[in-house]
């Protein structure tokens, strides 16, 4: 069986490791770092154009994959709501209380509210753990994408990809 993004829609370990937009695990701090899961060469550059600190570079050949400079990234999350592919999250590791905070793009109803407990899911939509919703930035006008900030135990840092608020998906876990 083939694995990887082209065959399953789920990236394999090697693909994630080789993506120039994905920061090394030890460069992710408490303030948050973009995690750009853009694995293929597609002509697109809003992440680079909207990054306020110049942490993302693509260049004139916009089919290049975005390269993240983790040192310049301040974890502001602008790119999370700008990426047309919804491929970017921001990960922050709060080592003092052993939790991870993940800001993720979300374009489904119902949107959760701060304080809710939601199901955090992996890249195959399977339940990973309960997560606490810290904050929801709803989309303004049509153009942007809502950004949901969740907190969960740090052991699931790279496993959690999104959340599930659909009633009919609750039996997947």
């Amino acid at each position: 069986m083939h694995d990887g993004i082209l065959y399953t829609g789920v990236p394999n370990r090697q693909e994630l490791k080789n993506a120039p937009g994905i920061p090394a695990a030890d460069s992710i701090g408490a303030g948050g770092t973009a995690f750009i899961e853009c694995l293929q060469t597609i002509a697109c550059n809003p992440c680079e154009a909207n990054c306020p600190t110049g942490a993302i570079s693509i260049g004139a050949q916009i089919s290049n994959r975005p390269v993240l400079d983790a040192k310049k990234c301040v974890g502001c999350g602008t790119c999370v709501s700008k990426c047309p592919g919804l491929a970017i999250t921001v990960i922050a590791r709060k080592r003092d209380d052993a939790t991870t905070v993940l800001s993720l793009p979300y374009e489904y109803f119902p949107l959760p509210s701060a304080g809710d407990t939601v199901a955090a899911v992996d890249r195959e939509g399977r339940f990973v753990c309960d997560a606490n919703v810290l904050n929801v930035k709803p989309m303004s006008a049509h153009q942007s994408t809502s950004v949901v900030k969740i907190e969960f135990p740090e052991e699931y840092t790279f496993k959690v990809k999104s959340i599930n608020t659909f009633h009919w998906r609750s039996n997947n876990g």
Binding site: E107, Y108, F109, L111, M139, H142, S146
Partner: peptide
Amino acid sequence: TDHPILGA
């Protein structure tokens, strides 16, 4: 009746 992109 309501839609995450298109609104109410």
